[in-house]
Each structure stands twice: as structure tokens, then as C-alpha cells.
Design a protein around this nucleic acid. Structure first.
Lengths: 239, 239
DNA sequence: CGAGCCATTTGATAAATATCAAGTCGTGCC
DNA sequence: GGCACGACTTGATATTTATCAAATGGCTCG
């Protein structure tokens, strides 16, 4: 693992507060690996041996059942994923594949578990991280159960705008088919939902979204802090 | 709070491993309260001041958005709920109401947070609990996104059967309309889904479910450890 | 530059699910 | 016991969403 990786990882809320010594031990046991695009690096059901940290590239977390598949999250640098499985020493509930070429740091789950047993600050960070992740999934589930696909798209567009400083225009951060799957709909349905939002202040140009009428869009989206989670500190995590 | 409550709470995985002294401190600050049926005891959006523990009765966790409402979980004795909100000192993401008369022990969130800062064993239990809750929601989300409503009902029936020692017959543990909402469908749709499963080995008599053909039902349900979570130790929690 | 590939869009249609409206049934309360 | 209420069911219908099939269009790679 590169020298410049360590300070990046150290900045993560999960690792920020632990002792320097423990951080050193943990990262000494870790190693970095590069993966080409479209590689399935984690298969659901396998034992969780490593906490993964994306340093570069984009990772899709997805799950399959029978012939179906759904995107659970899209992870970007610098964030960790599949923490819960590592902690429980249980099988991964999700698979992971690279969307583009990635560099991933892998921290042995065994060392992780050993560390928060002895480092109270790390234990605290882990608690906080897990609670955030939990709340994040709950919010997403609420969105799935309470909103129609059109409303979910509207809410997503507005949220992205907020993340870009309330920009009226931004580029979608991932392929539409991934986004559609994440939002719980087919690509066709997503496409039509966006189109139907033209009458409510959304224009599209390829990957670019332009909000032409915030008020109208907000009326459709019905943003809610308890679903969309903006403005609540430390709750940006997704896995 | 009653004397006989303490040992019951102490048995929970969350409190099992902490020091006796800390447990005493925590429960001294706590108090029990009785609620009549159909009382909304927690409203989503309010600050999370107390960890709740159901001692008697049944509690529904639900969320609302616009005029819609959905059941997120149903909690029975003896379990805690809304741990994550307490930890993050953040607003509740879900509301809670009593299904029937309840006795609830309420532990101040402030004391909780103070305790796992000083008690490493309690911190460990909290980590484990949160990781389980997280995985539980992820599994439920997978079920919602990957299965049709009919398949969800089939899977639910089989899971309940397993929980009853693979009994061919059991009583539904909650009203059908609650179950329907929890499974992400309308009561009408639930009713029809059950009926349509008659041809796949499910019979109904009021609240009683009778499985007449396990093989056929399993073929529909496609039970999966990574969704239905059976057999994975310590992963029964839901909130 | 051109060919092919793949994501996206669009259209037509089907399936799943929700909604509305009665009607049935059981249960609790007077 | 009988009444009233609410849950559940059933039917008819509307809406939402998915599926299948066929363009379109951008992009990469030779």
C-alpha cells in the first residue's frame, strides 16, 4: 500500500480518532490492490475477510436473487464498505464489482475486530459509523416504500443539486441504468420518469441534468430530512 | 421500573456483557411506563432522548411521508428499539405506536452514550447489535427490491414456519394489514397473494396459516440465507 | 474514419400493484 | 344477545411498473 494512502484513510471518520499506534498496526496488516473495470471482487455469501477501502475508482455494491440483480450502493473514494459483515464475521450480503479501474485497500477483518476490542476510541468511531449506515439504509427503504418511482427520481435530482451547492445543473455521477437500479426501477422506467418531470422543472441533456424550476420540482419531490438526510451531520454514509 | 424487569433486560445481547456496576447505573436512570393500545409514543423527527425496551405488549415502528404510511418493524418483548437514533443523538427516523397495551422501559440516551464511552464490553455489544440491525435492514431491502409481492409473502410464510420449528401450521403474529404494510404491499394485494398461493401449498383459515406443500412453497419463495437470514447467529434483530 | 458495441430512448404491450367500492365476517361492547 | 365497528375479502377498475422489441446515438477501438 502506498505511503500517500495512509493519510487519506486516516481522514475517514472511522479511523480518525484511533491511536496512531493502532492505526499503524492496522494498516501494516493491510495491502492495496488494483482491479480492472467490471471485476467482481466480492461475491455475496462468501466469508467477510477484509474491510475494503476505495482509494481510486468507483465500486458498485449489488445483490442478486434468482436471475435478478439490484444495485444497493455506489461507493467512491475515499470510503470503506462492508464493515458490518466484517464485524459480524458473517457472509457478505452484497457483491461488489468495479465500475471503473479501482485501487482498493484491504484491511483484514480479523485485525479490525481485534483493534476495536482494545481501542475505545476506535470502538466509538465504529459505533458511530454503523449507526450512520443503519440510518442511511432505513432512509433508503423509506423512500422505496413511500414514494413512487417518479417521486424518487425527483428527490434524487434535488438531492444531487444540493450536494453541488444547489446548482441548477449537474452531471449524473453514474450511469443511468445503475441509478435506475439503485432507485428500484428499470432503466426504461427511469427514462420515462425523467421525461415526465420535464413538466415539473427538469431538463436533460445526456448525462447533464438541468433544473429549470426548483419550486415545481420540490413540489413533486417532497424532500424530507428523515428520508433524504440532508443537513444531518455525519450521515452521508451508505454502506 | 419493576425489580423483575432488570434481569430480563440484562439478558439482552446489548446488555449482557457490560459490567454489573454500569448496568446498575444505566437502569437506575431508566424508568418504566405503561401505554394503552394505539398510542403514538414516538413521533418521527423528534429528538431521540430515550432508548426504548419493550417489556410487555407489541410496538409498531412506522414511517410516514405525505399522506402515506408504512410499517418498518414490529417489536415484541424483550427487545430494544431506536438504538441508532440515540447513538447519533439525531431525530427519530421512525414513529412508534403501541399495537396493544405495553410496558416500556425508557433508558436516557445521554446515559447510554456516556456508558459505552467508559465500558469497552458495552461498546462491543453495541457494535455487534448495530451491525446486526444494519444487516437486517439490508436483507429486508433486498427482499423488497428483488422479489415480487407474491414471493415476499411466500418467503414470509416459510420463515414463520421455520421459527415455529418447521411447523406446517402457525398463527400469524400480527394483523394482516400490518404484515402487508411491512412486506410493502396493500392489504388487498396481500389477501390476493395469499389466495394465489393456495395452488402452491398454502391454506388459510383466519389468522392461521397451513402449509400443505412445503416443496411447492419453497419453489415459489426461494428462501435465501442472504435475504431471509435464518441460521445466522445473532441476526434476529430488526431495529 | 468506420464498424460495432452498448447505453439510452421510445413505442407497444403485458403484468403487477393500487384504488375504490361493496360485501362478509368475526369480535368486543353495551 | 344484538349491535357496531373494524378487519378482511372480493370484485371492478385504474394506475404504475415491467417487459419486449426496435430505433437512436454516443463512444471506443481497430
Amino acid at each position: 500500500m502506498r505511503d500517500e494512502d495512509k493519510p487519506e484513510i486516516r481522514k475517514l471518520p472511522l479511523f480518525r480518532d484511533m491511536t496512531g499506534e493502532n492505526f499503524e498496526t492496522l494498516t501494516r496488516a493491510a495491502y492495496a490492490q488494483s482491479f480492472p473495470a467490471q471485476l467482481e471482487m466480492i461475491r455475496q455469501g462468501e466469508p467477510a475477510d477484509f474491510l475494503h477501502v476505495v482509494m481510486e475508482g468507483t465500486v458498485e455494491l449489488f445483490s442478486g436473487w434468482r436471475e435478478r440483480e439490484t444495485t444497493m450502493a455506489v461507493v467512491r473514494p475515499v470510503s470503506s464498505f462492508i464493515l458490518a459483515a466484517c464485524i459480524k464475521d458473517a457472509p457478505y450480503l452484497m457483491s461488489a464489482r468495479t465500475i471503473e479501474k479501482c485501487r482498493i485497500v484491504m484491511i483484514p477483518a480479523k485485525d479490525l475486530r481485534a483493534t476495536f476490542r482494545t481501542d475505545p476510541d476506535f470502538a466509538m468511531s465504529t459505533i458511530s459509523e454503523l449507526a450512520s449506515c443503519y440510518r442511511s439504509v432505513v432512509r433508503h427503504t423509506k423512500s422505496l416504500k413511500l414514494r413512487s418511482s417518479r417521486e424518487r427520481v425527483a428527490a434524487y435530482v434535488l438531492c444531487q443539486s444540493r450536494l453541488t451547492g444547489n446548482a441548477a445543473s449537474f452531471i449524473l455521477p453514474m450511469e443511468k441504468r445503475l441509478l435506475a437500479s439503485f432507485l428500484g426501477m428499470t432503466p426504461e422506467n427511469f427514462s420515462r420518469a425523467v421525461k415526465s418531470l420535464q413538466s415539473d422543472g427538469v431538463a436533460v441533456d445526456g448525462m447533464r441534468i438541468i433544473i429549470t424550476n426548483f419550486e415545481a420540482l420540490e413540489a413533486v419531490a417532497g424532500l424530507d430530512a428523515l428520508i433524504d438526510g440532508f443537513g444531518i451531520s455525519g450521515e452521508l454514509n451508505s454502506a
